[in-house]
Design a protein around this nucleic acid. Structure first.
Lengths: 339, 339
DNA sequence: ATCTGTACTGAATCTCGTT
DNA sequence: GAACGAGATTCAGTACAGA
């Protein structure tokens, strides 16, 4: 039994409770190889709910206070999972849609092509202060905020694990790209990732590559064997490659006074806002003066705007040859003081 | 009280139970005008669930045996709704994702941009034989199966209803394009559509335009008044423009159907050629009718000229204040969905 | 008329470490 | 605990004013 509060992140891909009836054939009369495993058979919703409540409750127990959990599912099971999550005290942060580049078409023409799956991302509780590598996600997305709709192909080709007969080893193997984004978003190197439905080990393989620790639970021996071999073959990326772009809050701080001390903004320099509507003078001790206002760059910025708060680093600008630059940009060249 | 089994389709946009606390400011310090209406306040999940069970149960009672129901929501409420739907005996057909072209960003950088909402489409029961206008949906999507992920802009600009002060009349008015696709997918002219949370009447306006009957329920007098006026201003499209049939169409970045959905070329619009020799009527699924000809803009263009082929985008024109413009020019304003 | 820059807005569960 | 204060944080689209 895992100790309580020992895991930073859970990724779970539980049985979907598909409730399929009979075989499905394509228009050319070939048979679709659907999910028909013993592990996806539940007698009714009550049985599925009880099963869900049990494993989700246990995940919550082993999660650290600020840890987060991901679950992936489809309309067959995701609504039950989401509702139970909320009842157990999890705090939903996002639902994320995995849009499939190449979904299976709807052969009968009776519904829309089922072209996505849903992931729920939740913190252990409402008071959790979860990790979110905002800048890393933004960087992954061409420098605009990462949205809740993701686009990935299915796991096919050489990534798909197959047995000696060339048949797929697991009916619902997830693409590594999906796990890469999940783990990069909410963990850091050295974190412990738990997957309670390991299957063929996609989460473990990606965790190892990203230098995260992992714990996998799987009861099917053939899947365990495949996952172990797969993880063994993974080479971790070098340390400098697995750390997400730090959030600004994590970056070492450069005090405004340092810019004054080092002569980048000599005392007496005049700063202005982006619209050149107000001005302030840099004082030798790293404060600003603007009219009767006097204080930190943030305080004076807030005061001149009559606003409750202000980030002085982005509000105040310096005029260089007629063009304005936020003083924030001056920090880039400075080395932060040790701790 | 509505009689049992009297409604063909329900569209419901219930309160989301957002649970907001405190005000949220943008980086420029402006305040976000969030949803803080009385109707979105519930004491807890139990209260919300009881409310949900009641209205959903009533919807099931008034639905015909083969009728279907749509509900829209976000992660705040959609999991509870989906679970209760299943418990009441509804049979989920699809979950559909509305990807927003222009969602509000996440201002604090603590989560992914909440860029979508979820719709659940369900039949009254597992044994229902629901209506799905497969060919119409395919035609609307450039002759490939319509997927479960839809891309639409928010309801803004002139479509958004405003009061005398220019303020939005309703905090969550849905775009008509969304309802156009919903109603075209699962109803036929003359069907009865029920909206138990009518708001400012988007569903009713679209239903009237598509020659469907509608019943709206709304308790807020100001919303009722706005909805009544709005519906009164709607002109129904002509009969031949609201039924759907199959077409074949060459792939284009922006499907012709998108122009119809977004209201740039409403169903019933009359197109003509450059010399005003022939006319054609726009059908709601993005096809054209001209005399006995019916098909894609290209097919009908070719047929009326007795030519082997035709580029409908440049052949067909719209009369705007006496001057003709090729429909191709209307595409410029539309941004194709990414991927 | 056409272009450009500015302002405004949208179903949002939106900070965190130190005192 | 609460209070304080530094400082982190936005994208797409529409509307409108001014050139």
């Amino acid at each position: 039994m895992l100790p309580a509060a020992s895991v930073d992140c859970v990724f779970a891909d539980p049985p979907y409770n598909l409730q399929l009836r009979g075989e499905l054939r394509r228009p050319d009369d070939s048979v679709v190889d659907g999910v028909d495993e013993e592990w996806d058979r539940f007698t009714d919703f009550a049985a599925y709910d009880a099963f869900t409540r049990e494993w989700l409750g246990e995940c919550r127990r082993v999660l650290r206070k600020d840890g987060t959990l991901w679950v992936i599912g489809t309309y067959h099971n995701i609504f039950r999972i989401g509702a139970i999550l909320q009842e157990l005290g999890f705090w939903i942060l996002n639902d994320v849609v995995w849009r499939k580049a190449n979904p299976m078409p709807n052969f009968r023409g009776r519904r829309f092509t089922n072209a996505h799956e849903t992931l729920i991302w939740a913190a252990r509780g409402r008071e959790s202060r979860h990790r979110f590598n905002y800048q890393a996600m933004k960087a992954l997305n061409d420098d605009v905020q990462m949205r809740s709709d993701w686009y990935f192909p299915l796991c096919t080709g050489s990534e798909r694990l197959r047995n000696e007969h060339g048949l797929k080893l697991h009916p619902t193997q997830k693409p590594e790209a999906l796990l890469h984004r999940v783990l990069l978003a909410c963990t850091q190197p050295g974190d412990v990732v738990l997957d309670p439905f390991l299957g063929t080990g996609t989460s473990a393989a990606v965790a190892k590559r990203l230098a995260r620790h992992f714990i996998g639970i799987e009861r099917h021996p053939a899947y365990v064997e495949a996952a172990l071999g797969r993880v063994r073959r993974v080479r971790p990326a070098p340390p400098e490659a697995v750390t997400a772009t730090p959030t600004r809050r994590e970056a070492k701080r450069v005090p405004f006074g340092a810019l004054v001390e080092r002569g980048l903004l000599p005392a007496g320099t005049v700063l202005t806002d982006r619209m050149r509507r107000v001005q302030a003078v840099v004082v030798a001790d790293g404060t600003l003066r603007s009219g009767t206002h006097h204080g930190s760059i943030h305080q004076v910025g807030a005061a001149v705007q009559n606003a409750p708060s202000c980030n002085g680093w982005t509000f105040w600008h310096i005029d260089r040859d007629g063009t304005l630059a936020a003083i924030d940009t001056l920090r880039a060249g400075l080395i932060a003081p040790p701790d």
